[in-house]
Design a protein around this nucleic acid. Structure first.
Length: 424
RNA sequence: GGAAGAGUAUCGAAGUGGUCAUAACGAGCCGCACUCGAAAUGCGGUUGUCCUCCGGGGCACGUGGGUUCGAAUCCCACCUCUUCCGCCA
Protein backbone atom coordinates (compact mmCIF):
# COMPACT_ATOMS: atom_id res chain seq x y z
CA UNK A 1 0.00 0.00 0.00
CA UNK A 2 1.26 3.42 -0.88
CA UNK A 3 1.61 6.11 1.76
CA UNK A 4 -1.29 8.48 1.28
CA UNK A 5 0.69 11.26 2.94
CA UNK A 6 3.54 10.81 0.48
CA UNK A 7 1.16 10.76 -2.48
CA UNK A 8 -0.55 13.94 -1.46
CA UNK A 9 2.74 15.75 -0.94
CA UNK A 10 4.41 14.39 -4.10
CA UNK A 11 1.41 13.83 -6.32
CA UNK A 12 3.04 14.66 -9.62
CA UNK A 13 6.22 12.68 -9.02
CA UNK A 14 4.30 9.66 -7.71
CA UNK A 15 1.91 9.73 -10.64
CA UNK A 16 4.82 9.89 -13.10
CA UNK A 17 6.54 6.92 -11.53
CA UNK A 18 3.32 4.94 -11.48
CA UNK A 19 2.69 5.77 -15.14
CA UNK A 20 5.84 3.86 -16.12
CA UNK A 21 3.95 0.67 -15.25
CA UNK A 22 1.74 -0.91 -17.86
CA UNK A 23 -1.62 -0.15 -16.29
CA UNK A 24 -3.08 3.24 -15.54
CA UNK A 25 -3.94 4.44 -12.09
CA UNK A 26 -5.38 7.80 -11.06
CA UNK A 27 -3.79 9.04 -7.85
CA UNK A 28 -5.63 12.36 -7.96
CA UNK A 29 -8.88 10.56 -7.17
CA UNK A 30 -7.59 9.05 -3.95
CA UNK A 31 -5.94 12.32 -2.90
CA UNK A 32 -9.27 14.10 -3.29
CA UNK A 33 -11.01 11.45 -1.22
CA UNK A 34 -8.36 11.87 1.43
CA UNK A 35 -8.90 15.63 1.58
CA UNK A 36 -12.60 14.97 2.05
CA UNK A 37 -11.85 12.46 4.78
CA UNK A 38 -9.64 14.85 6.72
CA UNK A 39 -12.20 17.62 6.54
CA UNK A 40 -14.87 15.30 7.93
CA UNK A 41 -12.52 14.07 10.63
CA UNK A 42 -11.84 17.57 11.90
CA UNK A 43 -15.57 18.25 12.04
CA UNK A 44 -16.51 15.09 13.96
CA UNK A 45 -13.61 15.41 16.33
CA UNK A 46 -14.88 18.82 17.40
CA UNK A 47 -18.29 17.26 17.98
CA UNK A 48 -16.77 14.42 19.96
CA UNK A 49 -14.88 16.87 22.10
CA UNK A 50 -18.17 18.56 22.95
CA UNK A 51 -19.71 15.19 23.77
CA UNK A 52 -16.82 14.25 26.05
CA UNK A 53 -17.10 17.51 27.90
CA UNK A 54 -20.81 16.94 28.46
CA UNK A 55 -20.10 13.44 29.74
CA UNK A 56 -17.96 14.99 32.45
CA UNK A 57 -20.49 17.64 33.28
CA UNK A 58 -23.56 15.40 33.57
CA UNK A 59 -22.52 13.46 36.69
CA UNK A 60 -21.74 16.75 38.41
CA UNK A 61 -25.14 18.17 37.46
CA UNK A 62 -26.83 15.03 38.71
CA UNK A 63 -25.00 15.26 41.99
CA UNK A 64 -26.06 18.86 42.37
CA UNK A 65 -29.62 17.76 41.72
CA UNK A 66 -29.98 19.78 38.55
CA UNK A 67 -32.41 18.91 35.79
CA UNK A 68 -30.68 17.05 32.93
CA UNK A 69 -33.60 16.82 30.51
CA UNK A 70 -32.37 19.59 28.28
CA UNK A 71 -28.77 18.46 28.02
CA UNK A 72 -29.90 14.88 27.43
CA UNK A 73 -31.98 15.97 24.47
CA UNK A 74 -29.13 18.09 23.17
CA UNK A 75 -26.62 15.27 23.52
CA UNK A 76 -28.98 12.79 21.92
CA UNK A 77 -29.06 14.98 18.82
CA UNK A 78 -25.29 15.39 18.88
CA UNK A 79 -24.81 11.67 19.38
CA UNK A 80 -27.00 10.91 16.36
CA UNK A 81 -25.07 13.41 14.28
CA UNK A 82 -21.76 11.87 15.32
CA UNK A 83 -23.04 8.43 14.39
CA UNK A 84 -24.00 9.70 10.96
CA UNK A 85 -20.67 11.43 10.45
CA UNK A 86 -18.72 8.38 11.64
CA UNK A 87 -20.64 6.26 9.19
CA UNK A 88 -19.86 8.69 6.37
CA UNK A 89 -16.18 8.76 7.32
CA UNK A 90 -16.07 4.97 7.37
CA UNK A 91 -17.49 4.92 3.88
CA UNK A 92 -14.86 7.33 2.58
CA UNK A 93 -12.10 5.50 4.41
CA UNK A 94 -13.30 2.25 2.92
CA UNK A 95 -13.17 3.77 -0.54
CA UNK A 96 -9.66 5.09 0.05
CA UNK A 97 -8.43 1.79 1.43
CA UNK A 98 -10.04 -0.14 -1.36
CA UNK A 99 -8.52 2.14 -3.99
CA UNK A 100 -5.08 1.93 -2.39
CA UNK A 101 -5.21 -1.86 -2.20
CA UNK A 102 -5.54 -1.98 -5.99
CA UNK A 103 -2.69 0.48 -6.67
CA UNK A 104 0.71 -1.18 -7.14
CA UNK A 105 4.00 -0.05 -5.66
CA UNK A 106 5.94 2.82 -7.19
CA UNK A 107 8.88 1.53 -9.23
CA UNK A 108 12.26 2.45 -7.77
CA UNK A 109 13.24 6.00 -8.75
CA UNK A 110 16.15 4.73 -10.89
CA UNK A 111 14.23 1.85 -12.44
CA UNK A 112 14.70 1.09 -16.11
CA UNK A 113 11.61 2.32 -17.91
CA UNK A 114 10.28 -0.24 -20.33
CA UNK A 115 7.21 -1.89 -21.76
CA UNK A 116 7.66 -5.63 -21.21
CA UNK A 117 10.26 -8.35 -20.65
CA UNK A 118 12.00 -7.56 -23.93
CA UNK A 119 13.13 -4.29 -22.32
CA UNK A 120 14.71 -5.97 -19.29
CA UNK A 121 18.42 -5.17 -19.27
CA UNK A 122 20.82 -8.05 -18.65
CA UNK A 123 22.95 -7.37 -15.59
CA UNK A 124 25.43 -10.28 -15.73
CA UNK A 125 25.99 -13.82 -16.89
CA UNK A 126 27.52 -16.84 -15.25
CA UNK A 127 28.86 -19.93 -16.99
CA UNK A 128 28.80 -21.00 -20.57
CA UNK A 129 25.87 -23.04 -21.96
CA UNK A 130 27.15 -26.49 -22.73
CA UNK A 131 27.34 -27.64 -26.34
CA UNK A 132 25.94 -31.09 -26.92
CA UNK A 133 27.24 -33.49 -29.55
CA UNK A 134 23.96 -35.41 -29.46
CA UNK A 135 20.31 -34.35 -29.74
CA UNK A 136 19.22 -32.92 -26.38
CA UNK A 137 16.15 -34.30 -24.73
CA UNK A 138 13.73 -32.06 -22.87
CA UNK A 139 13.46 -32.83 -19.15
CA UNK A 140 9.98 -34.35 -19.46
CA UNK A 141 11.33 -36.99 -21.84
CA UNK A 142 14.46 -37.55 -19.80
CA UNK A 143 12.40 -37.89 -16.61
CA UNK A 144 9.79 -40.17 -18.14
CA UNK A 145 12.37 -42.38 -19.85
CA UNK A 146 14.37 -42.71 -16.63
CA UNK A 147 11.11 -43.46 -14.77
CA UNK A 148 11.73 -40.66 -12.26
CA UNK A 149 8.86 -38.44 -13.43
CA UNK A 150 5.29 -39.62 -14.06
CA UNK A 151 3.07 -36.98 -15.59
CA UNK A 152 0.35 -39.31 -16.83
CA UNK A 153 -0.44 -40.69 -13.41
CA UNK A 154 -0.28 -37.25 -11.82
CA UNK A 155 -2.95 -36.20 -14.28
CA UNK A 156 -4.99 -39.24 -13.28
CA UNK A 157 -4.68 -38.40 -9.60
CA UNK A 158 -5.45 -34.74 -9.97
CA UNK A 159 -5.39 -33.19 -13.43
CA UNK A 160 -3.39 -31.23 -15.96
CA UNK A 161 -0.34 -29.29 -14.77
CA UNK A 162 0.40 -31.64 -11.91
CA UNK A 163 3.42 -33.88 -11.73
CA UNK A 164 4.72 -36.81 -9.75
CA UNK A 165 8.29 -37.58 -8.80
CA UNK A 166 9.29 -41.21 -8.46
CA UNK A 167 12.27 -43.11 -7.10
CA UNK A 168 15.50 -41.23 -7.82
CA UNK A 169 13.35 -38.30 -8.96
CA UNK A 170 11.64 -37.98 -5.61
CA UNK A 171 15.03 -38.31 -3.96
CA UNK A 172 16.56 -35.67 -6.22
CA UNK A 173 13.73 -33.26 -5.49
CA UNK A 174 14.29 -33.72 -1.76
CA UNK A 175 18.06 -33.47 -2.19
CA UNK A 176 17.70 -30.14 -3.96
CA UNK A 177 15.49 -28.78 -1.20
CA UNK A 178 17.92 -29.92 1.46
CA UNK A 179 20.90 -28.57 -0.46
CA UNK A 180 19.32 -25.15 -0.87
CA UNK A 181 18.19 -24.91 2.74
CA UNK A 182 21.56 -26.06 3.99
CA UNK A 183 23.35 -23.39 2.01
CA UNK A 184 21.04 -20.57 3.06
CA UNK A 185 21.18 -21.58 6.70
CA UNK A 186 24.84 -22.56 7.06
CA UNK A 187 26.54 -20.23 4.58
CA UNK A 188 24.14 -17.31 4.23
CA UNK A 189 22.85 -16.98 7.79
CA UNK A 190 19.13 -17.47 7.30
CA UNK A 191 16.83 -19.09 9.85
CA UNK A 192 14.75 -21.94 8.52
CA UNK A 193 10.98 -21.86 8.90
CA UNK A 194 8.32 -24.38 8.04
CA UNK A 195 5.13 -22.30 7.95
CA UNK A 196 1.51 -23.24 7.33
CA UNK A 197 0.71 -23.90 3.69
CA UNK A 198 -2.83 -22.64 4.05
CA UNK A 199 -3.18 -18.92 4.41
CA UNK A 200 -5.95 -16.63 5.58
CA UNK A 201 -7.27 -13.63 3.70
CA UNK A 202 -5.51 -10.99 5.79
CA UNK A 203 -2.13 -12.56 5.06
CA UNK A 204 -2.84 -12.81 1.33
CA UNK A 205 -3.84 -9.19 1.31
CA UNK A 206 -0.77 -8.20 3.28
CA UNK A 207 1.69 -9.30 0.64
CA UNK A 208 -0.43 -8.11 -2.27
CA UNK A 209 -1.91 -11.33 -3.71
CA UNK A 210 -5.35 -10.06 -2.73
CA UNK A 211 -7.61 -8.40 -3.61
CA UNK A 212 -6.43 -7.86 -7.16
CA UNK A 213 -5.13 -11.31 -8.05
CA UNK A 214 -7.77 -13.50 -6.46
CA UNK A 215 -8.14 -15.53 -9.67
CA UNK A 216 -4.52 -16.73 -9.39
CA UNK A 217 -5.02 -18.43 -6.04
CA UNK A 218 -6.60 -21.70 -4.97
CA UNK A 219 -9.21 -21.01 -2.34
CA UNK A 220 -10.98 -23.17 0.19
CA UNK A 221 -14.22 -21.27 0.29
CA UNK A 222 -15.69 -22.98 3.30
CA UNK A 223 -12.84 -21.78 5.50
CA UNK A 224 -11.80 -18.71 3.51
CA UNK A 225 -8.27 -20.13 3.37
CA UNK A 226 -5.94 -19.98 0.41
CA UNK A 227 -3.25 -22.44 -0.65
CA UNK A 228 0.09 -20.67 -0.37
CA UNK A 229 1.18 -19.46 -3.82
CA UNK A 230 4.68 -18.88 -2.42
CA UNK A 231 6.33 -18.99 1.01
CA UNK A 232 6.62 -15.22 0.67
CA UNK A 233 3.06 -14.99 1.94
CA UNK A 234 3.25 -16.95 5.21
CA UNK A 235 6.81 -15.89 6.00
CA UNK A 236 6.36 -12.16 5.38
CA UNK A 237 3.22 -12.28 7.51
CA UNK A 238 4.95 -13.76 10.55
CA UNK A 239 5.49 -10.24 11.88
CA UNK A 240 2.17 -8.76 10.80
CA UNK A 241 1.04 -6.11 13.31
CA UNK A 242 4.31 -6.28 15.23
CA UNK A 243 6.97 -3.76 16.18
CA UNK A 244 10.51 -5.09 15.80
CA UNK A 245 13.70 -3.96 17.52
CA UNK A 246 15.95 -1.94 15.24
CA UNK A 247 19.08 -3.89 16.22
CA UNK A 248 17.40 -7.17 15.25
CA UNK A 249 17.34 -6.09 11.57
CA UNK A 250 17.82 -7.53 9.09
CA UNK A 251 15.84 -10.64 9.98
CA UNK A 252 16.51 -13.34 7.41
CA UNK A 253 14.33 -16.41 6.95
CA UNK A 254 14.31 -19.25 4.51
CA UNK A 255 11.53 -21.75 4.05
CA UNK A 256 10.70 -24.67 1.87
CA UNK A 257 7.04 -24.90 0.88
CA UNK A 258 5.01 -26.33 -1.91
CA UNK A 259 3.40 -23.53 -3.95
CA UNK A 260 -0.02 -23.58 -5.53
CA UNK A 261 -1.05 -21.39 -8.44
CA UNK A 262 -4.00 -21.48 -10.80
CA UNK A 263 -1.85 -20.14 -13.64
CA UNK A 264 -4.91 -18.35 -14.91
CA UNK A 265 -4.15 -16.76 -18.23
CA UNK A 266 -1.26 -19.07 -19.09
CA UNK A 267 -3.31 -21.58 -21.07
CA UNK A 268 -1.18 -23.16 -23.75
CA UNK A 269 2.12 -21.93 -22.32
CA UNK A 270 4.75 -24.35 -21.05
CA UNK A 271 2.19 -27.14 -21.10
CA UNK A 272 4.79 -29.90 -20.85
CA UNK A 273 7.10 -30.73 -18.00
CA UNK A 274 7.84 -29.02 -14.75
CA UNK A 275 8.07 -25.42 -15.85
CA UNK A 276 4.53 -24.28 -15.15
CA UNK A 277 2.55 -26.48 -12.76
CA UNK A 278 -0.31 -25.84 -10.37
CA UNK A 279 1.83 -27.28 -7.60
CA UNK A 280 5.57 -26.92 -7.32
CA UNK A 281 8.20 -26.83 -4.62
CA UNK A 282 10.20 -23.75 -3.79
CA UNK A 283 12.76 -22.64 -1.26
CA UNK A 284 12.20 -19.01 -0.49
CA UNK A 285 14.28 -16.34 1.24
CA UNK A 286 12.59 -13.47 3.06
CA UNK A 287 14.23 -10.47 4.69
CA UNK A 288 12.92 -7.78 6.99
CA UNK A 289 15.41 -4.99 6.52
CA UNK A 290 16.21 -1.49 7.71
CA UNK A 291 15.07 1.06 5.09
CA UNK A 292 18.57 2.55 4.90
CA UNK A 293 20.18 -0.71 3.81
CA UNK A 294 17.43 -2.58 2.00
CA UNK A 295 19.03 -2.19 -1.42
CA UNK A 296 22.28 -3.69 -0.15
CA UNK A 297 20.16 -6.52 1.20
CA UNK A 298 18.62 -6.98 -2.23
CA UNK A 299 22.08 -7.41 -3.74
CA UNK A 300 23.11 -10.00 -1.15
CA UNK A 301 19.76 -11.78 -1.42
CA UNK A 302 20.22 -12.07 -5.16
CA UNK A 303 23.79 -13.28 -4.64
CA UNK A 304 22.48 -15.93 -2.21
CA UNK A 305 20.14 -17.26 -4.90
CA UNK A 306 22.89 -17.16 -7.52
CA UNK A 307 25.18 -19.14 -5.21
CA UNK A 308 22.89 -22.15 -5.55
CA UNK A 309 23.14 -22.16 -9.34
CA UNK A 310 26.88 -21.59 -9.14
CA UNK A 311 27.29 -24.54 -6.81
CA UNK A 312 25.19 -26.67 -9.17
CA UNK A 313 27.18 -25.27 -12.10
CA UNK A 314 24.10 -24.36 -14.07
CA UNK A 315 24.71 -21.39 -16.41
CA UNK A 316 22.45 -18.43 -15.76
CA UNK A 317 22.00 -14.76 -16.33
CA UNK A 318 20.57 -11.99 -14.17
CA UNK A 319 18.18 -9.44 -15.62
CA UNK A 320 16.67 -6.40 -13.98
CA UNK A 321 12.95 -6.03 -14.52
CA UNK A 322 11.93 -2.85 -16.31
CA UNK A 323 9.00 -0.82 -15.00
CA UNK A 324 6.53 -2.48 -17.35
CA UNK A 325 7.45 -6.00 -16.22
CA UNK A 326 7.68 -5.30 -12.50
CA UNK A 327 5.40 -7.24 -10.15
CA UNK A 328 2.54 -5.52 -8.37
CA UNK A 329 4.16 -5.05 -4.95
CA UNK A 330 7.79 -4.70 -6.00
CA UNK A 331 9.89 -1.55 -6.30
CA UNK A 332 12.85 -3.35 -7.84
CA UNK A 333 13.34 -6.92 -9.02
CA UNK A 334 16.15 -9.06 -10.39
CA UNK A 335 15.19 -12.22 -12.21
CA UNK A 336 17.69 -15.03 -12.35
CA UNK A 337 17.27 -17.17 -15.44
CA UNK A 338 18.82 -20.61 -15.70
CA UNK A 339 19.93 -22.11 -18.99
CA UNK A 340 17.36 -24.58 -20.32
CA UNK A 341 18.79 -26.55 -23.28
CA UNK A 342 15.39 -27.76 -24.56
CA UNK A 343 14.08 -24.19 -24.67
CA UNK A 344 17.44 -23.06 -26.08
CA UNK A 345 17.22 -20.01 -23.87
CA UNK A 346 17.37 -18.82 -20.28
CA UNK A 347 14.25 -19.52 -18.19
CA UNK A 348 13.27 -17.72 -14.98
CA UNK A 349 14.30 -19.75 -11.97
CA UNK A 350 14.32 -17.06 -9.29
CA UNK A 351 12.89 -13.62 -8.74
CA UNK A 352 14.43 -11.35 -6.08
CA UNK A 353 12.62 -8.20 -5.07
CA UNK A 354 12.71 -5.27 -2.73
CA UNK A 355 9.19 -4.21 -1.81
CA UNK A 356 10.44 -1.29 0.28
CA UNK A 357 7.64 -0.39 2.73
CA UNK A 358 4.78 -1.38 0.42
CA UNK A 359 4.11 -4.77 2.04
CA UNK A 360 5.13 -3.50 5.47
CA UNK A 361 2.41 -0.90 5.23
CA UNK A 362 -0.20 -3.47 4.20
CA UNK A 363 0.94 -5.88 6.92
CA UNK A 364 1.74 -3.18 9.49
CA UNK A 365 5.28 -4.36 10.26
CA UNK A 366 7.37 -1.67 11.92
CA UNK A 367 10.52 -1.22 13.95
CA UNK A 368 11.43 1.28 16.62
CA UNK A 369 14.01 3.81 15.50
CA UNK A 370 16.49 3.99 18.38
CA UNK A 371 17.36 7.61 17.69
CA UNK A 372 13.92 9.15 17.32
CA UNK A 373 12.08 6.48 19.40
CA UNK A 374 9.45 6.58 16.67
CA UNK A 375 8.16 3.60 14.76
CA UNK A 376 9.00 3.21 11.07
CA UNK A 377 7.92 0.64 8.52
CA UNK A 378 10.52 -2.00 7.73
CA UNK A 379 11.44 -2.89 4.18
CA UNK A 380 10.56 -6.41 3.09
CA UNK A 381 12.43 -8.40 0.47
CA UNK A 382 12.14 -11.86 -0.88
CA UNK A 383 13.55 -14.12 -3.53
CA UNK A 384 13.31 -17.69 -4.69
CA UNK A 385 16.30 -19.64 -3.68
CA UNK A 386 15.30 -21.44 -5.86
CA UNK A 387 12.21 -22.72 -7.63
CA UNK A 388 12.84 -26.44 -7.11
CA UNK A 389 10.85 -27.78 -10.08
CA UNK A 390 12.60 -25.54 -12.53
CA UNK A 391 15.99 -26.27 -10.97
CA UNK A 392 15.18 -29.99 -11.25
CA UNK A 393 14.35 -29.48 -14.94
CA UNK A 394 17.48 -27.42 -15.63
CA UNK A 395 19.63 -29.96 -13.84
CA UNK A 396 18.26 -32.89 -15.83
CA UNK A 397 18.71 -31.09 -19.12
CA UNK A 398 22.15 -29.61 -18.46
CA UNK A 399 23.56 -32.80 -16.97
CA UNK A 400 22.12 -35.26 -19.49
CA UNK A 401 24.36 -37.73 -21.24
CA UNK A 402 24.15 -39.25 -24.73
CA UNK A 403 22.72 -42.49 -23.33
CA UNK A 404 19.85 -40.66 -21.65
CA UNK A 405 21.33 -40.89 -18.17
CA UNK A 406 21.83 -37.87 -15.94
CA UNK A 407 24.97 -37.16 -13.94
CA UNK A 408 24.46 -35.94 -10.39
CA UNK A 409 26.49 -32.78 -9.63
CA UNK A 410 29.21 -33.27 -7.01
CA UNK A 411 27.53 -31.04 -4.42
CA UNK A 412 24.35 -33.13 -4.46
CA UNK A 413 25.98 -36.54 -4.18
CA UNK A 414 25.86 -36.68 -0.40
CA UNK A 415 22.17 -35.79 -0.26
CA UNK A 416 21.59 -38.31 -3.09
CA UNK A 417 23.01 -41.12 -0.92
CA UNK A 418 26.23 -41.06 -2.97
CA UNK A 419 24.45 -41.70 -6.24
CA UNK A 420 26.62 -40.48 -9.13
CA UNK A 421 24.25 -40.86 -12.00
CA UNK A 422 20.61 -41.60 -12.67
CA UNK A 423 20.22 -44.25 -15.32
CA UNK A 424 17.73 -46.87 -16.39
C1' G B 1 -17.57 -31.17 17.45
C1' G B 2 -19.71 -30.36 22.88
C1' A B 3 -19.20 -27.77 27.82
C1' A B 4 -17.08 -24.03 30.95
C1' G B 5 -13.84 -19.88 31.60
C1' A B 6 -10.70 -15.88 29.84
C1' G B 7 -8.88 -11.78 26.45
C1' U B 8 -7.04 -4.34 29.70
C1' A B 9 0.38 -1.32 28.89
C1' U B 10 6.60 -5.40 28.47
C1' C B 11 4.42 -9.18 32.13
C1' G B 12 0.88 -10.28 36.25
C1' A B 13 -3.46 -7.83 37.30
C1' A B 14 -7.52 -4.04 39.45
C1' G B 15 -11.64 -1.65 37.47
C1' U B 16 -18.74 -4.57 36.65
C1' G B 17 -22.72 2.38 33.68
C1' G B 18 -20.10 8.55 34.37
C1' U B 19 -15.94 13.03 37.09
C1' C B 20 -10.43 5.84 37.04
C1' A B 21 -7.08 4.86 30.71
C1' U B 22 -0.54 8.71 29.59
C1' A B 23 -4.92 2.73 33.05
C1' A B 24 -4.88 1.43 40.69
C1' C B 25 -1.50 -2.26 42.76
C1' G B 26 2.77 -5.58 41.88
C1' A B 27 6.90 -7.02 38.71
C1' G B 28 10.32 -5.86 34.76
C1' C B 29 13.14 -2.18 32.13
C1' C B 30 15.64 2.91 31.80
C1' G B 31 17.47 7.29 34.44
C1' C B 32 18.73 9.84 39.02
C1' A B 33 19.86 9.86 44.39
C1' C B 34 22.23 7.19 48.49
C1' U B 35 27.11 3.88 48.28
C1' C B 36 34.21 2.86 47.60
C1' G B 37 31.11 -0.53 44.62
C1' A B 38 26.87 -3.66 44.82
C1' A B 39 22.39 -5.10 47.20
C1' A B 40 18.46 -2.83 49.64
C1' U B 41 15.83 1.79 49.63
C1' G B 42 13.82 6.47 47.66
C1' C B 43 12.41 9.67 43.42
C1' G B 44 11.27 10.10 38.24
C1' G B 45 10.29 7.81 33.44
C1' U B 46 8.30 3.62 30.47
C1' U B 47 1.51 2.20 24.48
C1' G B 48 0.20 2.93 19.67
C1' U B 49 -2.26 5.77 16.08
C1' C B 50 -4.80 9.73 13.41
C1' C B 51 -6.08 14.99 12.57
C1' U B 52 -4.08 19.81 13.46
C1' C B 53 -5.27 26.83 12.24
C1' C B 54 1.09 23.40 16.28
C1' G B 55 -2.65 26.04 20.90
C1' G B 56 -4.48 21.39 21.04
C1' G B 57 -7.92 17.49 19.85
C1' G B 58 -9.79 12.50 18.44
C1' C B 59 -9.49 7.09 18.57
C1' A B 60 -8.02 2.28 20.67
C1' C B 61 -9.72 -2.28 27.04
C1' G B 62 -9.55 -9.28 21.34
C1' U B 63 -12.75 -7.74 16.61
C1' G B 64 -17.41 -5.91 14.73
C1' G B 65 -22.33 -4.39 15.85
C1' G B 66 -26.35 -2.91 19.45
C1' U B 67 -28.59 -0.44 23.99
C1' U B 68 -27.65 4.53 26.44
C1' C B 69 -27.05 11.54 27.09
C1' G B 70 -22.64 8.40 28.38
C1' A B 71 -19.90 1.45 27.65
C1' A B 72 -13.69 -1.70 29.64
C1' U B 73 -18.41 -2.40 32.38
C1' C B 74 -25.00 -4.36 29.80
C1' C B 75 -26.73 -7.25 25.07
C1' C B 76 -25.57 -9.94 20.21
C1' A B 77 -22.15 -12.11 16.66
C1' C B 78 -17.30 -13.50 15.47
C1' C B 79 -11.91 -14.46 16.55
C1' U B 80 -8.12 -16.30 19.79
C1' C B 81 -6.42 -18.73 24.19
C1' U B 82 -7.06 -22.15 28.61
C1' U B 83 -9.38 -26.47 30.94
C1' C B 84 -12.54 -30.80 30.51
C1' C B 85 -15.10 -34.32 27.15
C1' G B 86 -15.28 -36.51 22.21
C1' C B 87 -12.35 -37.57 17.84
C1' C B 88 -7.58 -38.18 15.75
C1' A B 89 -1.78 -38.56 13.25
Amino acid sequence: MLDIKYIREHLEEAQQRLDTRNEEYDLKKVVDLDAQRRKMLTETEAMKQKQNQASKKIPQMKKAGEDCTEIFAEMKTLSDQIKEMDEAIRTVEGEIKNTLLYIPNLPHADAVVGKDDTDNPEVRRYGEPRTFDFPVKPHWDLGTDLDILDFERAVKITGARFSMFKGMGARLQRALIDFMLRMHVKDHGYTELSPPFMINRASMQGTGQLPKFAEDAFIMEKDDFYLAPTAEVPVTNIYRDEILEEESLPLCYTAYTPCFRREAGSAGRDTRGLIRNHQFDKVEMVKFAHPDTSYDELESLTANAEAILQALEIPYRVVELCTGDLGFSAAKTYDIEGWMPSYDRYVEISSCSNFEDYQARRTNIRFRDQETKKTRFVHTLNGSGLAVGRTFAALLENYQNADGSVTIPQVLRHAMWNLERIEK
